[in-house]
């Protein structure tokens, strides 16, 4: 996993509530697809339309418009990526180019999945997210945002920097580019000790 330290880029506003993982990457684009190419189909139900039997870009959808085609930050509504556990939702966003998603809240499984692929999910109060979405929409060509994980600050195109919170442990892992496995492996002795005791207490667990 690549480390995440700081990023300056275009932010795409998609401030709708309850965008589910079936929208982010539909099943037919998930089965058998390489994760690095999933970005072609991120938000497929909204991004493409059927015109006379062939699949065309929907020009009204934000990611089909310049400069949002190059966006690396997504500003989303509450409960973003609710629904299924498919890690393809993160891979599809990552493959498109997104490295940061800012929303008032996330589907719980999705947020955990983000940290495994170097995507930073940032939770901010709904009014703040809405204000950032408005800025991104108002002046798209100059609307570059900087997200810095070392200082935990978002610098929007206008106005003051916004502080965000990331669990200390998650922050360090992202800065170093580590997923959870390395961290867990430093605890193998404790795991062994737990299992030895637990075998006595709950022998039926160990088949």
């Amino acid at each position: 996993m690549r480390a995440f330290k700081s990023l300056t880029g275009i932010a795409a506003p998609l401030f709708r509530a309850n965008i589910n993982t079936d929208i982010i990457i539909p099943m037919q684009h998930l089965v058998g697809t390489d994760r690095v190419t999933m970005g072609f189909n991120v938000f497929a139900p909204w991004r493409y339309e059927n015109v006379d039997g062939s699949r065309c870009e929907n020009p009204n959808f934000i990611l089909n418009q310049r400069p949002f085609r190059q966006s690396s930050i997504l500003i989303a509504g509450p409960n973003f990526a609710c629904g299924s556990s498919r890690e393809g939702a993160v891979w599809a966003l990552h493959s498109f180019g997104f490295r940061v998603v800012i929303a008032p809240s996330f589907g719980g499984i999705f947020a955990n999945n983000c940290y495994q692929s170097g995507v930073l999910p940032i939770v901010l109060k709904e009014e703040l997210v809405a204000a950032l979405a408005r800025q991104a929409e108002a002046a798209p060509h100059t609307a570059t945002f900087t997200v810095d994980l070392k200082s935990c600050l978002i610098e929007p195109p206008q106005g003051e920097a916004i502080k965000f919170e990331v669990e200390a442990f998650r922050r360090i892992a992202l800065l170093k580019g580590l997923d959870d496995l390395g961290m867990i492996k430093s605890r193998l002795l404790e795991i062994e000790k737990y299992r030895n005791l637990d075998c006595e207490v709950r022998p039926w667990i160990y088949l």
């Binding site: 299924s84 556990s85 498919r86 499984i109 955990n112 999945n113 669990e167 959870d180 795991i191």
Partner: peptide, 23 residues
């Protein structure tokens, strides 16, 4: 019981453990 992503599954298979925040 709860759902997790594929990478977290790797962690469980490899260590029989998972890091979680208590809900």
């Amino acid at each position: 019981a709860w759902g997790i992503g594929s990478t977290e599954l790797v962690h469980v298979l490899a260590t029989q453990t998972l890091m979680q925040r208590k809900p």
